[in-house]
Design a protein around this nucleic acid. Structure first.
Lengths: 337, 337
DNA sequence: ACCACGTCCTTAAACGTTTACAGGCGACGT
DNA sequence: ACGTCGCCTGTAAACGTTTAAGGACGTGGT
């Protein structure tokens, strides 16, 4: 490996010697504490001449703050991609923090290993995106008083950590009004195999707006075709269907296959916790979508507030979801009995 | 802020006292250096009982290695998103490093500021994705012997850093053979406003395969419509057109508007440095696409090799690009004179 | 003239590791 | 019995900051 050059070995001592002051004074200048104008100028000059760059490791060691936050993805699928990271890192960087990222790639052991590594680095805070139910290291964070926040979802051990997730009441109301305004009386909501908090919240919002919600719980073996056929066969059948990824794409396909007109015979609405937004937009699928920037900003801000001393809410709801009406939903068609 | 708990304040000294050995011995155990079986067992037990977690800051301060690498995006647009990050971080994590990320959001000043921050953190290496031509801090990295690598593109000061980019000869050949096999003799290549190394490399490959390349250099004011019309009006006109994002989408739109059949009258091929892959696939646009995983893995591996002592090539070409023939390109149609 | 006080500064002690150096000690060859 | 050699371990000195404690010095009130 290339030898470390000399430029980064300039320390407070060197600057102090050059500016003819003590290292404490140099430290004050660097940290923008009060210093006499004369010293300030001399130190500034010395810093510039020597090319002094503070050593974060020494600072961290002494001050017990790393100015670093960790973020762990459980899995790359089902996440909001780089926009979330971007907004989050920008938010915390404005406060002086840096973001270290990792992916667990679906392995619980790896997740725990990553948490341990972040502990070694003494991160000042940790973001966990859809964390797994258990993680032995979590107890360590709690014992050490290091803030840990879950994003989007949580369960198991992480129930003790604040959860940041989008609020679905507003898009739920918008969706309900859109459907009710189109003459729909009943909506089929397809429950996915793994629970979806988003869908649950939306279902509630639909009911609040006086729409009849019919839960569809497909058997393990059912394909989209069976689901659609099942919905159509119901007495007084729903005229709209709400589903999450990746089921919704299959539903659209099945409708085409079965000759079911969208939105004429059945309005289709997608719920995207995810970044499938572009796909839906392009294909004219009405959807509840998430704005990853808002999630990132809100998560970062909440964490900064926590570090600032305020106790975070157990659930932090972010106005980051909205309903976009597109071609796949419209007025309820005439329904055969 | 929550008070730091006591669990993280367990140090080598505490472990040493408990295991009745010196801190040097504990350090040896933690770093897996040779230690007698008896000491090993006692220290291991003490570590477990006390919940000792090594302090990375102290380690970094003393050993002058942070086991950390930095990565800076110039801009979120035109990058390959999270897959690249994922592959890169996985690669370096396997060697014990962590990845710190940041976005400069198009601002050159911010870019420099970020580089300075990474310098404070004493990153062991730095990845710069499409860096701006100038960055004052770069000199510091060079002076300090910290490896800096550019990804995809570089210019200005960064010409001195190794560049990692996809190889385009193979996809270029594939594209050329695809077109030549379809009876195309001439291809229009649309030069984008900002230079595209990918397009340049492909152009060369096309020429190598004996296709006539006609460069189209649109005026500032030209829209896609003018470009397409211009190509069609050329004598002995090209029967295929190659363009980069976002122009290629506009070209497709213009063809529709002008009633130009794709691929009947004109084959359209996109060049994607970017993550537009999904879009092209969905719309059946033939394209040269990049595999971000390969780029990430290769970049990480190259950096590790550099840190391992081997001098990196000035340009590192990664087999990460491929040509995907889709509906927008096909046999050359009958061309009116 | 003296004391109290403020401002600016310095001294020195941490923070938790890594690592060069040397000491202890048993085994082994002579 | 004695040097020699290896192995294991301990001692102690860094690494570059932050920060508590207190010193120096000038100012203003009595």
């Amino acid at each position: 490996m290339a030898p470390r050059g000399e430029r980064l070995k300039v320390t407070l001592h060197d600057v102090a010697a050059r500016a003819q002051v003590s290292i404490a004074t140099v430290s004050r200048v660097v940290n923008e504490l009060s210093v006499s104008p004369a010293s300030l100028a001399r130190v500034r000059a010395a810093v510039a001449e020597l090319g002094y760059v503070p050593n974060a490791a020494a600072r961290t060691l002494r001050s017990e703050r790393s100015w670093t936050m960790g973020l762990i993805f459980s899995d790359l699928r089902n996440t909001l991609g780089i926009e979330l990271l971007d907004a989050l890192s920008e938010t915390i960087e404005a406060a002086g923090y840096s973001l270290i990222i990792s992916t667990a790639r679906g392995s619980a052991e790896r997740y725990d290993e990553l948490m341990r590594r972040f502990l070694e680095r003494r991160v000042d805070a940790l973001f966990c995106i859809r964390p797994p139910p258990r993680a032995g290291s979590l107890a360590r964070y709690q014992a050490a008083g290091v803030p840990v926040m879950a994003l989007f979802e949580r369960s198991g051990d992480f129930e003790a950590s604040p959860l940041v997730r989008p609020a679905f009441s507003e898009p739920g109301r918008a969706l309900a009004q859109h459907l009710a305004g189109g003459g729909h009386a009943a909506v089929a909501v397809v429950r996915p195999p793994s629970r979806s908090p988003a869908l649950a919240a939306l279902t509630e919002a639909l009911r609040d707006e006086r729409l009849r919600v019919e839960l569809v719980e497909p058997a393990e073996s059912d394909g989209a075709r069976e689901i659609v056929a099942g919905v159509l066969a119901r007495p007084d059948r729903p005229t709209a269907i709400v589903a999450v990824d990746p089921l919704v794409r299959a539903v659209v396909g099945a409708c085409h296959g079965l000759g079911v007109a969208i939105p004429g015979a059945l309005s289709v609405v997608a719920v995207s916790d995810l970044a499938a937004d572009a796909h839906y937009r392009r294909h004219g699928v009405s959807a509840v979508v998430i704005d990853p920037h808002r999630m990132g900003r809100a998560s970062g801000a909440a964490m900064l507030a926590w570090l600032g001393g305020s106790v975070p809410a157990e659930r932090i709801r972010v106005q980051a979801a909205s309903f976009a009406a597109r071609a796949s939903s419209g007025p309820a068609g005439v329904v055969g009995g």
